[in-house]
Design a protein around this nucleic acid. Structure first.
Lengths: 351, 351
DNA sequence: CGCAGGTATCGAATCGATTCGAGCGGCGGG
DNA sequence: CCCGCCGCTCGAATCGATTCGATACCTGCG
């Protein structure tokens, strides 16, 4: 091995400054009383040695804190970031976390490497975004490691704090609004309900086998009002998927006068599909969605949708993690959506 | 303090299994020879004590590796993820990094806390995405820490490996194509050129003060062909920004027959702005963009654009980091864009 | 039967900081 | 003038693993 430049250590700095290691440490961390003159000497020595501050690894071993909060998603990163809701929530999380001096570690629960980063990455807390039960093995590792766990719209689990949304009652409220407008034949365009993200008409069997809390709850809300509503499952929360699913739904059920989409993107796809077959929204087909996403560049329609406080949800999750880390008691949070009436719903044509 | 459950340590497991700590370590890591029977005993003891595997903090102190690769962006997370290019590149990075068993730490170079996570987060390497020179202080900390640095379209810096794109010659090729079609009056819609993301007409002073490599290079390419092309700066790579900037440009220069947008999103905004004022694309106004982004839900126009291998860029950056970590020699990478002719360019109307 | 060679295990040093209690002057009050 | 307190500095233990060299045992061969 050639010359060893090897990063200088705090001990080296202390030696050069002629103080003990403990004093040098105090000079850097600012904790504890240090004479100004001493601190200057230490900092000068550090500069001379090109010392860049204490090694985070050593520090984190000693203090038990790494300054990292992990966010675990089940999707591929690409898919997750295509979803404006995930991004918005992440933004809330990042903001809150950053403010508190933590950094954000992005983990996916990929099938390939079952507990890849989850097991080996240093983290002080973990936020699980919309995770299904089959994340169980990974999550177990974390609770063994006594990492505080916060689940956002995740299946309940012992020892996990939760952030929830009124998916069912919110969607029910939306459905009731459609019924009040006079709709009776309504179809539902669903978010994926399994990890394979398989498309197609929803059958009772598929529903029973599903692990996706959010999709199930939103469907339940819709069916509270329209018990027989047919549903088509999309392969993701994407405009194109909403387009495809709606087309399939309208092919199979031409009598539908309204579509309930489980997300705004699906709803936008529904509008595209409708227009493509010559239907005018909302006169020929009403579209109700969910999320209240702010989507760049789509200004023509204002979706009627259930607005959820997504950024706040992210913030809340982050704050719960921070509270848990601070040793404060943590109580679950639950949020409510609000029906925002746009230009995509109207009474059905009186035929 | 109440009862201390305190996570069991490897030493405890070793003791319970009746082996030495070293043996227990080997049993877990798989390195070194361990009799099968012994390993089973260790794993059993671990199970009984509910031991979740070695502490990443301690491991990383000892091994000098944390298994984390950081990605540094200058935007807020929200802004960065609104940009499909950033997301796509991140996807390439995440994929490559994950494959190698590393996790991804997301850092932003926020003004508030100058070296926030950058200084304190454990990381084995850092990827800087499109960062300007004023990232200097943060970056210096990292090179002090001897963390391998990879810059993507970043200003050159000593000790930093680079991934580059032919922004200038690519855009020049696009501009030449416009000229061949017969265009002479062309305007440029630009990406932000300063951290404040201030909008408005581009002046020579603002250009001189700018730090944004990518925007400058792409402009230079356009002006290689149309030296006097007026330019308007957008407040981000967003459809709405392209819309606004194009409107401003057309107000000030009604004679323009083509718009060169520095990103696809800006290009889409340009189309919107054109259509809004009754111009037909491409007959009345041609639009040339840059990126070749795959954008969900926009199927009407096929942008004429310079396609860049964005995912590959991400992969390359990640691979360079991994190579550096493996002690292999690293050589800079540079990529080329390709002009893809769509339906948004045509000869100008012969007036 | 003795020894070389190999394998499984062990001891102990080490990674680089933080932190707690003790020590040591200097200053103010009695 | 002496004592006690306060403010600064120092030593040494500690965090929880990895890893290198040494040890003990066993096998097979001469």
């Amino acid at each position: 091995m050639p010359a060893e430049p090897s990063r200088p250590t705090l001990a080296a700095v202390a030696a050069r400054a002629g103080v003990s290691q403990s004093t040098a440490s105090l000079a850097f961390s600012g904790a504890g009383p240090v004479a100004e003159e001493t601190r200057d000497r230490v900092l000068a020595a550090a500069r001379e040695l090109d010392y860049g501050g204490p090694d985070p690894r050593a520090r984190s071993l000693r203090t038990g804190r790494s300054g990292i909060i992990a966010v675990v998603m089940e999707d591929r990163i690409l898919d997750a970031f295509r979803d404006p809701m995930a991004v918005a929530m992440l933004d809330g999380i990042a903001d809150e976390i950053g403010q508190a001096g933590y950094s954000l570690l992005l983990l996916t629960d990929s099938d390939d490497r079952p507990v890849g980063g989850l097991r080996d990455a240093p983290m002080d807390a973990a936020l699980l975004l919309g995770c299904s039960t089959d994340l169980e093995p990974s999550v177990r590792v974390l609770s063994q490691r006594q990492v505080p766990l916060i689940g956002v719209e995740a299946a309940p689990r012992e020892g996990m704090h939760r952030v929830d949304l009124d998916n069912r009652s919110g969607m029910r409220r939306g459905a009731e609004y459609l019924r009040e407008l006079g709709h009776e034949r309504v179809g539902v365009v669903m978010l994926p309900i399994d990890r394979a993200r398989s498309r197609g008409a929803l059958t009772p069997e598929r529903l029973a086998a599903s692990e996706a809390e959010t999709a199930r709850e939103r469907l339940a809300g819709a069916r509270d009002v329209f018990p027989d509503a047919p549903a088509e499952v999309g392969g993701g929360s994407l405009i194109d998927e909403g387009h495809r699913a709606t087309a399939a739904l309208l092919d199979a059920h031409p009598e539908l006068t309204a579509i309930i989409a489980q997300s705004d993107l699906l709803g936008l796809g529904a509008i595209q599909a409708a227009e493509e077959r010559g239907l005018v929204v909302p006169e020929d087909l009403s579209v109700l969605a969910f999320d209240g996403a702010r989507i760049d560049g789509l200004s023509i329609h204002r979706l009627t949708t259930l607005v959820q406080p997504i950024v706040e949800k992210g913030r809340a999750a982050a704050r719960m993690a921070l509270a848990a880390l601070a040793g404060e008691p943590v109580s679950d949070a639950s949020f409510e959506s609000e029906l925002r009436i746009g230009t995509t719903t109207a009474p059905p044509r009186t035929s």
